[in-house]
Design a binder for these strands. Sequence first.
DNA 1: GCCAACGTTGGC
DNA 2: GCCAACGTTGGC
Length: 140
Amino acid sequence: MSYWLVKQEPSKYSWEQFIQDKKTFWDGVRNYQARNNLKEMKKGDQVLFYHSVVGKEVVGVAIVTKEAYPDPTTDDERWVVVDLKPVISIKNPVTLEDIKSHPELQSIALVKQSRLSVSPLTEKEFNIILKMGNTKIKGV
DNA sequence: GCCAACGTTGGC
DNA sequence: GCCAACGTTGGC
């Protein structure tokens, strides 16, 4: 089981939209590092959903339902997408400020490399963020 | 809306 | 293969 964080601008694809859709394929990744992370995702991995630019906060948890496959929105075979399904909304969204001020979250990619749209998290980091959001995942 | 940081592209 | 130029992202 791995943990990830994905970013999206809510004006492009918001968590609320995602909830309504019940699932989505994560397209639009055009960065090799992010792409490589996408390829590493396994079915059942948990993914934090972060709103960039507007809000700048972690708003929900999703789960990988289908591993990387070619991006259907482009002919360019370099790019892949994964399928995600929303799991739970975070009660108290965890802001970038919160993350930056937490001593154990200083080294996550969201802080160090703000432009990377798909980044790995350790289990510990994942759990800290959930806890800060006052959110528990059923059965975990 | 600005600008710094970063990644990518393309000329040499 | 290097590096300057350019485009994009995202925090402020």
